[in-house]
């Protein structure tokens, strides 16, 4: 009060409608707001209680969320209905500085800077070069320390160092994810089984899906690769050639493998060629055979990289 008079500001008329609250009956509104805020406070206390007596999300959310809803409603209503309704106005000022200020500023850059820089152009160039190089230098550890480069070695071996390799080699024993060896008769006609080379159960690039077709279908399954299967069992890489999801969805009647991620459809009967969807290439086939005691082994490795496409892929 004292400050208002000391500032010498003149009082405005009291009957300005802009300074009245929006509420027609402010006293009633205030009672409603009090109720809301009290409900809110009750909710906050309720949350503490709900937390104390148990751990049920619903009670906690109802008390905390409900409390905040009422409380926020009250506070907002206070601002909306009981404070001066306005409208008030504020002048905008130009964003751009005055012409003289601009030219002065620009002159500092162009003339003062130019005076120094043009005389020693070499130094300016070196400054730019050095700044760029220091950024590049920092990028070395930042990027290159992250991980290894993909190996160019395409012989089967450690799959972690190349996109082209798997651990399947001729003679790899076929095992399930539980490291159980697989016999031919473990699969019924129309059955599927996810397998790995022994010693690498669970490895991502090595996953293979075994499908047992009846023999007539199996001959069709791989044109020119009739001896890649074993008693109707054919083995394909389970990695989708689109984005590497496991192609685990097998439709027995239509002999289709469907990728659950983006619904590429592979025709098992024609060597898993993609017949629909975004996948570009057939699933690579793994030649398999059975040992004399009936266990399945790989009869070679994949003849191409498994999984999605990449630049170095031949």
């Amino acid at each position: 009060m004292s400050s208002s008079t000391s500032n010498g500001q003149k009082p405005v008329p009291v009957d300005l409608p802009q300074l009245r609250p929006l509420a027609k009956r402010p006293e009633h509104t205030q009672v409603l707001i009090i109720i809301c805020m009290l409900l809110g406070i009750a909710g906050f206390i309720g949350f503490m209680v709900a937390y104390w007596v148990g751990n049920q999300s619903q009670w906690q959310a109802a008390s905390l969320g409900g409390g905040m809803l009422f409380f926020g409603f009250g506070v907002t209503a206070w601002g909306k209905y009981l404070m001066p309704r306005g409208p008030f106005v504020e002048e905008r000022h130009d964003f751009d500085s005055s012409t003289s200020a601009r030219s002065e500023f620009n002159a500092v850059i162009t003339q003062r800077g130019g005076l120094v820089a043009k005389r020693r152009g070499v130094l300016l160039g070196l400054l730019a070069l050095g700044s760029g190089l220091v950024g590049l230098a920092l990028a070395f550890p930042l990027l290159r320390s992250l991980g290894p480069n993909p190996s160019k070695d395409t012989s089967a071996g450690n799959t972690n160092d190349s996109l082209s390799n798997t651990n399947w080699v001729k003679g790899s024993t076929v095992v399930t994810v539980d490291n159980r060896r697989v016999k031919v008769d473990d699969l019924e006609v129309g059955g599927v089984l996810t397998v790995f080379p022994a010693g690498n159960a669970g490895s991502s690039p090595d996953q293979v899906i075994l499908i047992r077709l009846d023999n007539a279908q199996a001959a069709q399954a791989a044109p020119g690769r009739a001896d890649w299967g074993c008693q109707g069992i054919v083995a394909f890489s389970k990695l989708c050639t689109h984005l590497g999801c496991p192609v685990g969805l097998y439709q027995q009647q239509t002999q289709q493998l469907v990728c659950p991620c983006h619904q590429s459809i592979f025709n098992v009967n024609a060597g898993c060629v993609p017949e629909f969807g975004p996948a570009p290439r057939p699933l690579p086939q793994l030649p398999i055979t059975a040992t004399s005691d009936g266990y399945l082994v790989a009869n070679g490795s994949f003849n191409q990289p498994v999984g999605p496409g990449f630049w170095e892929r031949p």
Partner: peptide
């Protein structure tokens, strides 16, 4: 010009309440 309500106290009250209500909807 800009016509509306000032930051203090009207807008502040409204927006504080709205902070509570936004949080409330999230928690509900």
């Amino acid at each position: 010009n800009v016509v509306g309500t000032p930051m203090f106290p009207t807008f502040m009250a409204k927006t504080t309440g709205f902070l509570f209500m936004s949080t409330a909807v999230t928690f509900l």
